[in-house]
Amino acid sequence: MSRLEQEMRTLAQQAGGSHKTVHDRMALAQRFCARLIHEQNVQIRRVDQLKARHIEGYIQNRLAQSINKRSLQNEMSALRQILIRAGRDKLAHSARLSNVALGLAGASRHGTHLAITPERYQNALAAAQQKDAGLAAAMALARMMGLRSEEAVQCGQSLNTWQKALAKGAASLRIVFGTKGGRPRDTHVLDAGAVKKAVDNALAVAEDRNGRLIDKPDLKSAMKYWHSQAGRMGLKGEYSPHSLRYAWAQDALACYLVQGYSEKEALAQTAMDLGHGDGRGRWVAQIYGRKEEAG
């Protein structure tokens, strides 16, 4: 590891945020330094030696790799946080490094995924059941409870707790493992019968796999298997595994509206169920509310 990368990774940690945010920021530091040092042979050892042209070159290279603008906006935000932490505020806010100047303006915030349709879901689930009962069980739970991929992969540790809670008529279930930032959240039980069936089935599978649905030795290999196999089941592109969560979010919003919540209240409650703050309702409508266009 170069001295520059070591310093940038330390600054990335010091900038704070959730575990995932810090992890992504550190990964960016590693990628940035690799291109700067190994590809361009730029011999820079400290952050205070960085120039606007170095960052411009990095972004142009990423654009040439067809990385979408929204992702690069996030990368620039992370780089700015690192620079600010290093006391390079002037460079961080330089007009040369604005999103407009870098060619990153105009990226849509509407997201790249769609809520999975019932037909697509049933086809994917049937294919998963033929391939791997644990994969199918995790997929069903993701759809029934709005789980993120890592939450679905790690949820075997919570199945007993969920089963007991459902037996007592719980209106919500606590998600503990695999959550973003390690922050537990409660998700509303929309269809108690369907959720109970999914949990019971998953528990039966996990009991034969040392408590795991994805039978891999570590989380990294389990996540790799989940994504690769889900893609083979048709969950890719606009209908990635996250589309299961999108579909749940739309169901949750509809459920709250039927119960008499105002649209603002329903969006706020859905945002909290998904693990976002109650102030993210409008964002949830914008991102999770996307539907397939007719025709």
Score class of each variant (00 low, 15 high):
H113Q: 12
T179Y: 06
D251C: 00
Y288I: 01
R25T: 13
R280F: 13
L190T: 07
G277I: 05
R209F: 02
G87T: 13
A78V: 00
R70A: 08
L97S: 11
E5H: 04
L72G: 01
Q130W: 06
E293V: 08
T187M: 11
N201A: 10
R282Y: 13
E75Q: 14
C155E: 05
M233T: 08
A64Y: 02
L63W: 06
A140P: 04
Q43Y: 09
L36Y: 11
A206Q: 04
I82K: 05
N201G: 04
A171E: 15
I67T: 08
L267N: 10
H188N: 12
L147N: 05
G211L: 02
Q163C: 13
K69P: 00
M8G: 02
S71I: 01
A170T: 04
K196Y: 03
K69S: 03
A124H: 02
E5P: 01
A285E: 02
A294E: 08
A115Q: 10
A266K: 10
S221N: 09
R232D: 09
I82F: 02
A252R: 09
L63V: 02
A52T: 03
L36A: 09
R290C: 04
W283S: 13
C33Q: 11
L253T: 08
R282A: 15
L213C: 01
A165S: 10
P217T: 05
M144W: 12
L253F: 06
L79S: 07
R143P: 06
K168N: 14
K164W: 13
G279N: 13
A247D: 01
P217V: 00
G237K: 10
L253R: 07
V47W: 06
A124T: 02
N68G: 06
D278L: 11
A247P: 00
L114P: 03
Q259M: 13
P118A: 01
S66F: 09
A115C: 08
R46G: 03
A202L: 07
R88H: 12
Q157D: 14
G281C: 02
Y261K: 09
E75P: 10
A29L: 09
G134M: 00
A222K: 06
H188C: 14
A86P: 12
H227D: 10
A136Q: 00
R280Q: 15
G146R: 03
I37E: 13
P118T: 04
R62Y: 03
S71M: 03
N160C: 12
S77R: 14
L91R: 12
L190H: 03
A268I: 09
S71G: 07
H113Y: 10
L79R: 06
A202Y: 07
C33H: 11
Q130H: 04
G103W: 11
I55M: 04
L253C: 05
E207T: 14
L274Q: 10
P184R: 09
D208N: 11
A64T: 00
D132T: 00
R245S: 04
G134K: 01
D218I: 04
L147C: 08
M139P: 00
D215E: 15
A268G: 05
Y121F: 06
Q13H: 14
Q6E: 15
